[in-house]
Design a protein around this nucleic acid. Structure first.
Lengths: 238, 238
DNA sequence: CCTAGTTACGTACACCGTACGTAGTGCGCT
DNA sequence: AGCGCACTACGTACGGTGTACGTAACTAGG
């Protein structure tokens, strides 16, 4: 007599064990780990209820005892990789500390290229997210601005990290299920871009592309963006 | 003998008409408009090849003559709403102009709440994107920095607009197919957040939440973030 | 004119999320 | 102690998805 809820629910609020009935065969962590393993190895689209269940060695529908909706499985996955954040002791240099946090987030996303796709559009106050948020606030202790401004800085910084890293990764993730390579896809898109710029319809864009020599250093662009954002909140620079 | 391509392809590079055979019944614009209509009215998940074809009044597989893969349909949609950008004459005040551009992008996303979900993770050099980019560069003409820095500013600004607006919209889009309202969902998530903060495990987070009185003004937060980013690139402020 | 490249579209396949029903298990209460 | 109920487990089935493939009709270029 399960009966799916007709009312919203946060999976983190639902207790993992209620005492009654047979002992569950898995923990949420087991399930999250299995899903993460699949996503890492075969891409996010390979994460289906059937596939995860098979990986765990149980029937498909048994999964629904642990995870009411597939969306909740996604929340478990994001939270699971969130645990990879190292919550170090703040050094007192808030800029350096926040750069370190951002670098960790970026590293996590490069390790699990499906993360950005799940992050965008998810409210996401999971346990590990809260811990990370608290840690960021600790790092920002030396910064003398209102708490509201600090949370806005954190949000902006996280947004920038996600956006930039998502862009770097997008093609890789997309070409996963395609019969061609990342390089081929990028080459084709760049060829189109070049052909359009060559029409002369976009003079300023053309100039911008002429200016740059050699391939773009994505990591450098990323770091410059971070520095700019930090500048914008640094009272010592105003 | 259609035969899908085993090589990457940009839909914009494929000519819309090649002369041979019966006259196509629709243009790409028709198809994009139909898909946009469906997404606006019933949400992005309602945009299926069958549904779009039905809206156009043709067989499902006929669509594949115009759009080789569903992903390309998404590209058409994003490009279509990109046309809603008003490419005004730059005023000479680059900050004001860029704010205006950002405001337009945000407005478009509020009109078509599915846009952020498609934007994140898409390379996206569609015709209208290129036009918009060129227009932004025109607005930034008065700003005395290298062209590379300008494109980085545009990218950062667009990223911030997308991230913030996506967050504002996320719950609305998600609850579209759910049997409960946006307010209910938000209330539940906030209740969980409150319960966690109340445990005392997140003192700084708790302090930040105590500090704020009343509901958050999303628009104000958004504008503050934009101003910060613009500050970071304003030579007059350094 | 003919033929090759297109359009149109019905059918079919593999896969998806998940509603529902049934059977078995073991805690909590009386 | 033992009953009942909440829980786990999971097979089946339904309505949807993207799209490969085959066939028929059509028309512009040689």
């Amino acid at each position: 007599m399960a009966g799916r809820a007709a009312v919203p629910e946060v999976i983190w609020a639902r207790p993992e064990r209620t005492g009654r009935g047979p002992k569950p065969a898995f923990t949420r962590a087991d399930i999250a780990a299995a899903a993460v393993r699949i996503a890492d190895a075969e891409g996010l689209d390979a994460v289906s209820m059937r596939h995860v269940a098979a990986e765990l060695g149980c029937g498909t529908m048994s999964l629904y005892n642990y995870v009411p909706r597939k969306e909740d499985l996604y929340e478990l996955m994001v939270d699971a990789v969130g645990a990879e954040h190292e919550l170090f002791e703040p050094t007192g240099d808030w800029r350096a500390d926040m750069l370190r946090n951002a670098g960790q987030t970026r590293a996590i996303m490069y390790r699990h290229t499906w993360v950005p796709r799940l992050m965008s559009g998810v409210f996401g106050f999971s346990p590990n997210t809260l811990r990370y948020l608290e840690h960021c606030l600790a790092c920002l202790e030396p910064l003398d601005v209102p708490a509201g401004t600090k949370t806005e800085l954190i949000a902006l910084l996280n947004g920038v990290v996600t956006t930039y890293t998502a862009n770097d990764i997008a093609t890789v993730e997309r070409t996963r299920s395609m019969p061609w390579s990342v390089e081929e896809e990028n080459a084709v898109r760049m060829a189109y871009l070049g052909s359009q710029v060559a029409t002369g319809a976009y003079p300023r864009l053309a100039a911008a592309f002429m200016e740059q020599s050699g391939p773009v250093d994505l990591e450098a662009v990323f770091r410059r963006a971070l520095e700019r954002v930090l500048d914008a909140y640094d009272p010592g620079l105003r």
